[in-house]
Amino acid sequence: MTTTTTLGYDDLPALLQRLTGDEKHDWSSLSTLDVVWVLHDRVLEEGDRFFLSKGHGPTATYAVLAAKGILPPELLDGFGTFDSPLGHHPDRLLVPGIEISSGSLGHGLGMAVGSALAGRRVYCLVGDAELEEGSNWEAVQLAGRMELATLTVVAIDNRSSSHGWPGGLEARFALEGWDATRVDGHDHDALAGALSRRSVRPRLVVAEVEPK
């Protein structure tokens, strides 16, 4: 993973506009944009992996990859067309910087456990609604038991889970042996601090954003 910055955070709106054709100026409503930016700008180190498990709405990730020089920006223009590598769910064989093909929910965390078992530092982005899928909890339980300290889950919480998480996601992960914390999903310093912290256990960072 390269960390050479070619464009900045302020350039993301123009890149997103190339993807979607949308001319809006406030892209903060994209729930994942700040988290994906902070990860690529300040957290990920050479050899680390980023798994976008919540594969729907990948435009924020495409834009960040383009800003970071991982994805040629000219690829943004044909988004979703037959000959474009960029679709509504990402394909790891088509897009540089996309490390898992996702879009069906509840797959990334299991793959992240496999990657962490092999000694890799891996960051897996999930959504609070995605965590409804039972497959996630198989991974959460094993990662806790095996103390997979190189695994970090960042859960975007826009309260889109239809039946909710009474008591909070943090309590559920903590019970399984994870370090768990909650930060403002748009606060870059808070995100960078929480995501960069090292631990002897797997870590959950809940990034709270506006309710969907």
Partner: peptide, 15 residues
Amino acid sequence: STGASYDASREGRTH
């Protein structure tokens, strides 16, 4: 079911 073989063409293989 909805989506059939490739109605969700823009969504990619997962759908």
